[in-house]
């Protein structure tokens, strides 16, 4: 790949702006047999908590028109397993590694940050927006003061890494949360996490998800995500990693025009595991066809009416 797709995101150079989204790509192991992970700009790995978590009972997935609900509930092996087992392997893959962290309390988030800070991850993404856990999660991301407090606590324990905070769309004003998080010291924002939803099996009168409700993602949420990225881009100065429903290179271009400097691709990978790589190739061709010397030129270039 050429220089055209290289982007600088919070001081970290990504070879291209395309990153599989947290929770949809594991730690990359499952996709390596299809293509080298070095084709990706980076990987946002599965959400890590301080201690191992089993997550919610199944079923954890329900199909929706053009998307899906999930209620995984942050199943993961904990920080120790991530740092000792997954990270050393990821560091050999020649791609940027974003650690995605979540905690049930401000203290837990801060402790996690202090464990991750000395590691070799390139960035940290603080998830204050998981809709599938009872404590922490979205409860952090829906109140400006709490969101700022978690961000500040993590910022303090993370002196050596850029901090990106992942926002929830399940709020009245995402720009207010974005501004609070920016003021509390975030270097970047990522959005959107999933939208809270529900499906019911009309034969059994039971929700399909055992957790009753879950997070909506996939193409269905794309216009909501574009709108939110655009609003937030106009409200803050820090860069944005845009996501929510991206499945083609055209979607990625649209998200970048709305104001995203990098993009994450999530649920689309389930339909087509090659999606992230196809998006990288599509962006390259788009730059060539339109005489764009670097993809960053299009960021935030939408001209509103």
């Amino acid at each position: 790949m050429s220089e055209r797709l290289i982007v600088n995101f919070c001081g970290v150079e990504f070879k291209n702006p395309v990153i599989p989204a947290s929770g949809t790509y594991g730690y990359g192991r499952e996709y390596e047999c299809l293509y080298p992970l070095s084709k990706l700009g980076g990987i946002s790995v599965k959400g890590t908590t301080l201690n191992p978590r089993q997550g919610n009972e199944g079923p954890r997935v329900a199909e929706t028109p053009s998307g899906m609900l999930n209620s995984v509930g942050l199943q993961n092996g904990g920080a120790k397993k991530f740092l000792e087992y997954e990270l050393p392997n990821l560091l050999t893959k020649d791609t940027r590694i974003i650690a995605n962290i979540a905690g049930a309390s401000v203290e837990e988030c801060a402790e996690l940050a202090s464990l991750i800070d000395p590691s070799q991850v390139d960035m940290v993404e603080l998830n204050i927006s998981c809709p599938n856990v009872k404590q922490g999660g979205a409860a952090f991301g829906t109140d400006c003061n709490v969101a700022a407090a978690v961000t500040a606590a993590v910022r303090k324990e993370l002196p050596h890494k850029p901090l990106m905070v992942k926002l929830s769309p399940n709020v009245t004003s995402i720009t207010d949360i974005a501004k609070s998080v920016e003021a509390a010291g975030a270097d970047a924002l990522s959005l959107i996490n999933t939208l809270l939803g529900m499906r019911i099996d009309i034969k059994t009168r039971r929700p399909i998800l055992h957790n009753n409700v879950g997070g909506l993602s996939g193409p269905a949420v794309f216009p909501v995500a574009v709108r939110m990225v655009w609003q937030v881009a106009n409200a803050v100065k820090i860069p944005i990693c845009g996501m929510g429903g991206i499945s083609t290179w055209e979607d990625a271009v649209e998200m970048m025009m709305a104001g995203a400097s990098t993009v994450q691709v999530g649920a689309a990978i389930f339909a087509d595991p090659y999606a992230p790589v196809k998006i990288v190739e599509g962006l390259e061709q788009y730059c060539i066809d339109n005489g764009i010397s670097n993809i960053s030129e299009i960021v935030g270039t939408v001209e509103p009416w």
Binding site: G26, E30, E57, V61, N70
Partner: peptide, 13 residues
């Protein structure tokens, strides 16, 4: 019920 089918998304417990 599954999504990825390959072990990445953790929905099929």
């Amino acid at each position: 019920r599954m999504a990825c089918g390959v072990g990445a998304c953790l929905v099929c417990v």
